Amino acid sequence: MSGGAGASLQADGERLQKVIAAAGVASRRVAENLIVEGRVTVNGEVVDALGRRVDPATDEIAVDGVPVQGDASRRYVLLNKPVGIVSSLQDERGRRDLSEFVDRYEERLFNVGRLDAETSGLLVLTNDGDLAHVLAHPSFGITKTYIAKVRGNVNPGTVQRLLDGVELEDGPIAADKVRLLESAKGESLVEITLHSGRNRIVRRMLEAVDHPVTDLVRRSFGPLHLGSLPVGKTRELSTVELGKLLRIAREARGSAQAGPDEESAD
């Protein structure tokens, strides 16, 4: 064991190669090779000898610098939320909610952030509270990309206004990126990327530039992309996607304590 020389082998816990294999990163035999080659770290220290035992729930494991979720009890699901579903696990008004998508999982999952009922697209469901906090909180600057169908023909000047910033009732807001995808026959398609978590922010920004939204889809959330996932379907995150999210979460632990939560809904 180098880098972490002096760290004694844990008498309990699970073997490191078993945890890596259970996380879906590699077979146990390949995981052993990764360890011997010095490509695995535990809590930031290189482990290059077999026999190390870890606590999957607390030890931070990485392979080639990419974080690995060793806790098999954690689940991460991507949902393409349909229009008409409220971002709640039990809606008090009896509307369709997320319970119909999480009930199929053994774990008790909850949503990361929100999408309003009339917005469809990417929503993350998980039982990892620490990760959910980082992803949902605006202070960590997770970007989201939306495709908006709006009334009217958007022109380059309007795109620049969105980039420069518009004034809303709760303060100014500027998009990180804006692309005009299509504009014809009194309608336009606009791709807009921003990191704000303010309520219904995309709709309010486009309303402020006189292009009300008629349809809104969230296509990406941080490193996650909706891809070809059909509306109303779920899939579990790949090990690569999860590694990217865990890296964001682990880096955020060193950040300043977050302020009051903002509701992330668009």
Rank of each mutant, 00 (worst) to 15 (best):
N155I: 13
P156V: 05
P156S: 10
P156F: 06
T158S: 08
T158M: 01
V159D: 00
V159H: 09
V159E: 13
Q160S: 12
R161V: 13
R161H: 11
R161I: 10
L162I: 02
L162E: 08
L163K: 03
L163Q: 04
L163E: 05
D164K: 13
G165S: 03
G165K: 05
L168V: 08
L168C: 04
L168G: 12
L168H: 04
L168I: 07
L168P: 09
E169V: 06
E169M: 04
D170Y: 11
G171M: 02
P172H: 09
P172W: 09
I173V: 15
I173C: 11
A174D: 06
A174L: 08
A174P: 07
A175H: 03
D176T: 15
D176A: 15
K177A: 14
K177C: 01
K177E: 15
K177Y: 01
V178G: 04
R179N: 11
R179A: 15
R179K: 15
L180P: 11
L180V: 12
L181V: 14
L181S: 00
L181H: 11
L181E: 15
E182H: 15
E182P: 05
E182R: 14
E182F: 13
S183P: 06
S183M: 00
S183F: 07
A184T: 12
A184N: 13
A184M: 10
K185V: 01
K185Y: 06
G186Y: 08
E187A: 11
E187I: 08
E187C: 10
S188L: 06
S188G: 01
L189R: 15
E191T: 02
E191R: 12
